[in-house]
Amino acid sequence: MDPLIEQLARHIIQVLRLENVVPDAIDPVAPLFGAGLGLDSIDALELIVMLEKEYQIQITDIEVGRKAFASLNALAAFIRERQRCAKTQ
């Protein structure tokens, strides 16, 4: 498993207090919200806090957040892109 994906899965499980879920069990391409993990609007806000705390990435626009949290893969790609932009500045 991609180390960033696994790390994100662990963060999500820990921060959102998901019971009976192991990192491997979260399908990287599946939607995080709606069906599946059953995440809701409070979880989305909590993940925004997690992104800032763990990766120093801020999301102020909820639409940006919606795209970033579409799936684990989308989130990893979002983080990598932001980190890349930060390095080149």
Binding site: I42, E46, V49, M50, K53
Partner: peptide, 12 residues
């Protein structure tokens, strides 16, 4: 006071 800011879950 935590890094990343206040917890929305806790506030709820």
């Amino acid at each position: 006071g935590a890094p990343g800011g206040a917890s929305p879950t806790a506030f709820s």
